[in-house]
Nucleic acid binder design. Structure first.
Lengths: 353, 353
DNA sequence: AGCCTTTTGTCAACCGGTTGCCATAAATTG
DNA sequence: CAATTTATGGCAACCGGTTGACAAAAGGCT
């Protein structure tokens, strides 16, 4: 009675003034109840609890809902229940393509299971990360931390509040998804040994990176096994730029083969060494980690220890969703395999001409 | 009185059983009101409407809030107000690095302004996109569509409901952020002309891509101006793979220079041509679009017309946020400049040997 | 002092679902 | 056919803020 009935053809091209609230604004369960001639609570039940109402009423309500093209109000639902059908993903650095695949894996899996993904980044900072995590906690059902930089204890504290899954790091008592580096690394080191290398450098990543530590351990172990000498070098940041900067240390080290914490470092390193006139792989072999997008664009294409990043993202999401639905091991670690992707940046060492 | 006071040191290493609800669960404005000795509504006002309560009460309430380390419940706030401090970003393809810069730009700007980013992808499908958009509409304050594939009308319909900003496409009546291709393209074409090229091929992107159409127009216009012949080729999909597939058409076309809809196509095309023994740029020049991550990893590094993608993402976010806060032009288009990034994949044509 | 305006806090309704409890109707059983 | 169990729908309270209306208190002015 109070609303005029021509909200549509009013002004087709005129700039829309206000945003909705009027017009075909959202129907509520009360509207449905009225149309179907039942109580709102019955509508609620019909729409969420399967089997709680009779088939007849169910149909009645569903038809009414369809007619009004009803959509639940997620906030109204979240308020009493706490369920939001949303989860958060915090990555260390959105710039880093490593996380692209993780994000993609997570987003895809989330969408399939009818969840929404909320994204944040920590800019490689532990405190930013914790802040972002805390903020998210209020609005999500669960959280995925990809390569977190904060303390184990902080992570456990978060996990006490809501389900948390960690990628690329192992935290006691928290479900994790980690690539098992050993297979890939030993393949890589064996390949280097077979090609005549005797001294291998490892360019480490951020000091707080759990994964960097694991990779260094793996490299050490594999080198020992193959009777190679292993030295560790530090990088300023795990980026292309960081790779360029570490080039002089690499040359100074006397190593003829380098494994780097990630592909970005490897690419930067290779660029810088090539710019200085070195021939890859004739004079030096370079092996990265992760097999990110673009790793095969370089010349020579980058040999790398691939982590199935997309799988990590979707695996973590699945783990989280299972946790949320009661299924699933509260603290199981999902291990995914790594493998050597042999491309052109590693190979036989040519005798110094 | 009713709650035991030792929730902490209970079982440090035992697997956390249930998730919160107990313990230091969230304080509400009612708790604050009790502590501060005022009415809940006063608390609400103190915390949201600046200046609505006296300085004294304000302080009282703030202290109480701090003590209880209160955090608003976003859902409780969203329910009556509709404000969520969240906005959605829908991209055509998460796999495509083009969008990563956009995502990054948007996320960064959003965080600064205290907004949360919700991400979804459409997998290059108009219907998936519309579905995702509709779903999001319920939970966000506004929406950013990056390279949308749906109809103008659908976009306008969405925009009638909540603020929408479009990236990489111009839609009448909707605020947009678009790179202005002309400068970059004319630089590119002039450079090609100066290097002796006479026939230029353009490899188009998805048929629904507004940007692809603009780029083709730009190429045509620039070629006309420089008196070059321009031919248009179609690609199956705007990816590296699509680039590989279009290689035979490129060779068949007789063009000595190619501009591709995006860098991915350019990279794939270059790989395939090189695999077939062609020398870039001696026998054929290749120019991409966007300057994505990795465009300079190739050999030769890719010449490309750069779009400031990160700027698009942050610009769109700013536009949206301004819109939400009443400031800002309801339908202004933000144009950002493109420029030629001259690298090694384009250059002088060598006489066929 | 008396009256008017402004400030500040309270009351109560509301946003839109969810859910425990209860009453009625239907189905099962002895 | 009565007695009991089970299926179904309704009632009302609740989640945690927000906000319009109003009253009490404070301040300003003649």
């Amino acid at each position: 009675m109070t609303e005029p009935k021509t909200p549509d053809a009013a002004a087709p091209t005129a700039p829309a003034k206000k945003h909705a609230r009027d017009g075909k604004s959202n129907a509520t369960i009360y509207d449905i109840a009225k149309v179907a001639g039942v109580n709102p609570s019955t509508v609620s039940r019909a729409l969420s609890k399967p089997g709680r109402v009779s088939a007849k009423t169910q149909k009645l309500i569903e038809d009414a809902a369809a007619e009004l093209n009803y959509q639940v109000n997620p906030f109204a639902r979240a308020l009493p229940t706490g369920r939001t059908n949303t989860f958060g993903l915090i990555v260390a650095d959105i710039t880093n393509p490593t996380f692209f695949d993780i994000i993609r894996g997570a987003e895809t899996t989330a969408t399939v299971r009818d969840y929404t993904l909320v994204l944040a980044e920590s800019a490689e900072s532990a405190v930013t990360e914790l802040t972002a995590a805390r903020r998210m906690m209020a609005t999500v059902d669960g959280l995925i931390l990809a390569s977190p930089r904060m303390d184990d204890d902080d992570i456990r504290a978060l996990a006490r509040d809501k389900p948390v899954v960690v990628i690329n790091r192992e935290v006691d008592g928290v479900p994790c998804v980690v690539p098992d580096v050993n297979k890939g690394i030993s393949e890589a080191v064996r390949s280097l040994a077979a090609n005549g290398h005797r001294k291998v450098a490892f360019v480490a990543g951020p000091p707080q990176s759990w994964m960097s530590a694991r990779r260094w351990e793996g490299v050490q172990a594999a080198c020992e096994w193959s009777r190679l000498e292993a030295v560790r070098l530090e990088s300023s940041k795990p980026t292309v730029d960081g790779g360029r900067q570490v080039a002089r240390d690499v040359r100074a080290s006397g190593a003829t083969a380098v494994l780097t914490y990630n592909d970005l470092l490897a690419i930067g390193l290779m660029q810088e060494l090539q710019a200085a006139g070195m021939v890859v792989p004739d004079q030096i072999s370079i092996v990265g980690f992760d097999d990110i997008f673009g790793a095969d664009f370089t010349t020579p294409p980058l040999t790398t220890v691939r982590s199935p990043l997309g799988e990590c993202g979707s695996g973590a999401t699945t783990l989280l969703l299972d946790l949320l639905h009661g299924t699933g091991d509260p603290a199981g670690t999902l291990r995914v395999e790594t493998e050597l992707v042999l491309r052109g940046s590693s190979g036989r060492l040519l005798p110094a001409g």
